[in-house]
Design a protein around this nucleic acid. Sequence first.
DNA 1: TTTTTATATTGCAATATTACGATAATAAAA
DNA 2: TTTTATTATCGTAATATTGCAATATAAAAA
Lengths: 109, 109
Amino acid sequence: MGITKSEIFSPQQNELANFARVLGHPARIAILEHLFKINTCVCGDLVKEIGLAQPTISQHLKELKTIGLIKGEIAGTRVCYCIDEENWKEMRAILSTFLHQSLSEPDCC
Amino acid sequence: MGITKSEIFSPQQNELANFARVLGHPARIAILEHLFKINTCVCGDLVKEIGLAQPTISQHLKELKTIGLIKGEIAGTRVCYCIDEENWKEMRAILSTFLHQSLSEPDCC
DNA sequence: TTTTTATATTGCAATATTACGATAATAAAA
DNA sequence: TTTTATTATCGTAATATTGCAATATAAAAA
C-alpha cells in the first residue's frame, strides 16, 4: 500500500520518525553539512556543490524547510538559506533522548 | 526516478542517511522502544503491541536486523529479538556527531 | 521595457516503501 | 505422524520518493 499507518502510533513516535526520515537522504545530509560550514547559502551554490539538478536540490530544500530545519530569506533573485538553530536544537534533543535510551534488561542473545 | 544517487555522496554521508532512513518509520521506532523496555521479545509480542500485521512486523524487523541495530536468535518456534548494543552505540555516535555540529558563522536570516 | 539571473513549480517516469493475504518453513506438542 | 504455533517469504496493490526537463516566477540588470 505504501502508506504509513501513522494513526496507530503516538505523536512522539511520529515526530521522531519524521525527523529521521528527513535526515534519511544523503543529499539532505550534504545540504545540511554545507549549510553548517557556510552558514548562508543560495540554491545555486548547492547545485554546484552537490551535483544534482536544480529542481532536485530545490525540492530537498523545501522538505528541510517544511520540517523547520532550515529557513530561507529572499535576497534579490537569490534565496539565502541557513540552519534554523532553534528548531535544529529541538530536533537534536528529541533524537538524542531516543538515542540515549538505556536497556532495562541485559542483553538476551 | 525514485533512485537515490548514492555514488555522488561520501560513504559517511550515505551511512548516516541510511541509519536515519531506517529510524524514519514510526513502526521501527515503536519496535526499538519496546525492545529497550523489554530486551528480549518475540515477533508475536510486537504484533500485539504495535498493531500491524505479522508479515509487516517481520519485514520491519528484517530491516532493523540488516542494518545491525537488532539481533535475533531462534528459540524453538520463536525468535528472540533484542537490541545489538555495540552497533547501537556506533550508530548513536555517528548520528550524535552530525547532530552536534556547530555553526561556523552566525545565523544570517 | 527587455533581457538576464536565480529559484520554484509542474508533470512525468522510474524506483522504493509500506502493508497484508496467502503460503512456506520449522520446531514443539499431541 | 499429525497437529499446532510461530516466524519468514512471496506476490501484489497502493502510495511515496527521487530525479529531471520544461516551464513559471520574480527581481535585478541592461
